[in-house]
Design a protein around this nucleic acid. Structure first.
Lengths: 132, 132
DNA sequence: AACGTTATGTAATAATATAACATTTATAAG
DNA sequence: CTTATAAATGTTATATTATTACATAACGTT
């Protein structure tokens, strides 16, 4: 059971927008879209994004500087994320593969480092773009 | 056997700097450091970085917007990269683990997507920082 | 030498993200 | 219910990261 986070006003506006979009959104595109709701400054957006990332409601796609709603209800608060990214149409989806996440969460090498988090991004061509 | 790439003047200056630094470097820090060598504009740096990434001499650490020299002589031209990042001291090193790279290079799911590339970033505390 | 390709130089600007400070709202303890 | 504290907001300015556009030069082939 996931802890219930009561989102604040700005957080809710921004989460709903990203969630409804169904894909990754960039910060300034979010800003543009929520200006009619009274959110006027970049910092207001980034603060909400930071919080949403922290509580695992969204993830940042690092290679794209974009944010996507968590598609995985059992997501362990962004400690273990994997995405597939189409390099042609830029479609992104979150990979939920328990074998993969188990493999990576248990990964260790001889560096003496304790890994507490990972982010994996796969790139390629999606079904649609492949057949073009 | 890796294809020999003859680096151009700017590419060589910038690669040597990153390589000698031994760690990740950010673009504008690189710019600052090469101004005495006549490289004055961001674009000159980014162009060299783009090319160096393309030929696999350096990699971009996406979560840090930084660039690091490839530490893996057999690196398959940046198609398969993995890094460990200390969240305290920001030390970064490239992970060369053939089991891991084999596992990820062969990964596929039922999305119909063909993965041709991946980038993995592990986060945690390095040996030194753990013991503080 | 002529051609195409790659690299360079330069200026301007776009896109992404944070610092600093003042104020307000929510939460919890007494 | 009130006081203390933490969390969120509002606002302005600025820092950081990256690209567009255009002109010129160097390199590698035939």
């Amino acid at each position: 059971m996931q802890k219930e986070h009561n989102l604040s006003k700005n957080q809710k506006i921004i989460f709903d927008l990203i969630d409804k979009s169904g894909g990754p959104m960039k910060a300034y595109s979010i800003l543009f879209n929520v200006q009619k709701k009274g959110i006027k400054a970049p910092l207001q957006v980034y603060r909400a994004l930071d919080k949403l990332v922290e509580i695992g409601k969204i993830h940042k796609i690092e290679s794209r500087n974009a944010f996507i709603a968590c598609q995985n209800s059992s997501c362990q608060i962004s400690k273990a994320t994997a995405f597939s990214i189409c390099e042609s149409c830029e479609n992104v989806s979150e990979i939920s593969n328990s074998k993969l996440s188990k493999y990576l969460s248990n990964f260790s090498d001889n560096s003496g480092m304790k890994y507490s988090k990972y982010n994996l991004e796969f790139f390629g061509l999606c079904k649609k773009c492949k057949s073009k």
